[in-house]
Amino acid sequence: MEPTSQQETAHSSVLTLHVNGTPHTLTLDHRTTLLDALREQVGLTGAKKGCDHGQCGACTVLVDGRRANSCLLLAAAHNGAHVTTVEGLADGERLHPVQQAFVARDALQCGYCTPGQICSAVGMLAEAAEGHPSYVTPPEHPPGAPAALTAHEIRERMSGNLCRCGAYPNIVDAIGEVAT
């Protein structure tokens, strides 16, 4: 990687991203996406680039606790943000329960969608716990009450993450195991 001088120009800015708890102060081209900043500047390649257009979810990370397609975010607009990538989920050697469930249920094949699936699942579990409804949540569900994560709910809420290997049935099982 070329050394970056910490100087702003008309085309670049100096900004700080807190990635998995570690601050990174970077000089970034204004066109740089959060995904490219993570992969090419910070050196964390867990977040994948499947489409670069917000269509596949492979680049999903947690930005200030919420799941987001990092290919759609310009890094320059996220100075000071706290970003969690798949590399930041495990507690040392101890895998995050979602990671553990993916291993146990063989919820992956090629593994290229997997970091995005896992970050998305972690974000989704929090959304459901906070009572965010989905398209398939029954209208009579009390506002704000935690949503029950049936397989149907999980499929709906995880549909922003494509898996061409077709590991969906195992992904749904794995997330369902963590949700209960």
Binding site: V86, L95, Q99
Partner: peptide, 11 residues
């Protein structure tokens, strides 16, 4: 599997 769920597997 572990490398793939932790992002350690490099493509």
């Amino acid at each position: 599997a572990r490398d793939k769920v932790t992002g350690a597997a490099r493509y």
